[in-house]
Design a protein around this nucleic acid. Structure first.
Lengths: 194, 194
DNA sequence: ATCATAATTGAATAATGATTCATGTATCGA
DNA sequence: TCGATACATGAATCATTATTCAATTATGAT
């Protein structure tokens, strides 16, 4: 017998963040990830099915962690909750530049492959939409909620992307302004639909 | 001697929209594009340097056309101008589902490759930022303008993406709501910065 | 009609890189 | 100490496809 030593799975995940962030998922070679993780190329396949699964696991970790944070947000005022949720999302990414690059470029790959690893992501979506629903004061169509939710997350995502590639503004200012715009757009829509 | 017959370049561009939209840029085979365009694989290389250049030309056409539209927008009220610009952007994409898929998935590739083909795109950006600047009533930092611009375009992009993949709401409603949210977020930021 | 030349073809090339697997190694129980 | 077995290796395999290019065809000029 022989037992696994060290946390190779973790090493691979850490290494893959560096490699994916710098090369992009497409150009990232499994061999580079293995090299960065200081293991042999083939060993990657002892821990993951393949390159795709590594990416899925990275996103799974991100959404697991965000879900945990979101579950602690329980302000009774829905607008405050939305603000806190968006803030947490922003922070989760802004705290981690390398992963953010991957999020911005490759999230669609994760989203496009239905799998049990999406569980936390979907739960986050549900929590977000619930807050939007409540903020509307009276029943929105689910489709209206989903639309404004999409708009706001797209805006946040894009503000983040802009900040990461330019960074003239201090992070906190970006965060504040992003929240200002988000809240204003939700409020305006809620009013329009009334 | 022999002269070129038909508009093969145009055929290739049209075909590539179909292929890129359905397979995605990465999975799209040059051979498929050629097949769709009813020409031989090798002929593609008589008209384009390679796969990348085809994509660049698609985006160039889109921004050329949007720039032409934007140049006709001359309302003296900057908020009205912004609204018209965003509307034109939305329409340009919503009128063309297949191209929109490509825009949503692969625009970053175009943006990442500096080239003269970006000229119209950059001109559109400049017109947009100019309107934002004016809407602010007093001088914003360029970085503030760029940030809100990024936020708004990200929101619009995302609303469009959502609509394309769900389409429960009629297009016009999506357009209106998108504009409502966009204007509100810009106004809120302008006020906050004052 | 014939030639010269540009346009067109599509099979062959060549590079890439994910994945496999034969081989070697470390750890455990006895 | 000695199998037995799971862990680990990384060179070789294999599939994929963008791109090339030798061969072919169509067109215009003479």
């Amino acid at each position: 017998m022989r037992t696994r030593s060290g946390d190779k799975r973790g090493d691979i995940l850490k290494a893959s963040i560096q490699i994916f962030a710098h090369q992009g998922f497409d150009c990232a070679k499994v061999a580079s990830i293995a090299h960065e993780a200081k293991i042999a190329t083939g060993s990657v396949y002892l821990y993951f099915q393949g390159k795709d699964e590594i990416l899925d696991c990275l996103f799974e970790e991100f959404w697991d962690s965000l879900l945990a944070t979101m579950k602690t947000i329980d302000d009774p005022a829905p607008m405050k909750r939305i603000e806190a949720q968006l803030g947490a999302f922003f922070d989760g990414l802004a705290d981690n530049r390398a992963f953010s690059m991957i999020y911005l470029r490759d999230f669609h790959r994760f989203a496009a492959r239905p799998s049990p690893r999406q569980e936390s992501w979907l739960a986050c979506l549900a929590l977000g939409r619930a807050a939007f629903q409540e903020a509307a004061l009276r029943p929105f169509d689910a489709s209206d909620i989903a639309l404004s939710h999409a708009y706001v997350f797209g805006g946040v995502r894009s503000a983040l992307e802009h900040w990461m590639s330019h960074e003239e503004l201090p992070r906190n200012l970006v965060r504040t302004r992003m929240l200002t715009m988000a809240i204003a757009s939700i409020a305006a829509l809620a009013k329009e639909i009334e």
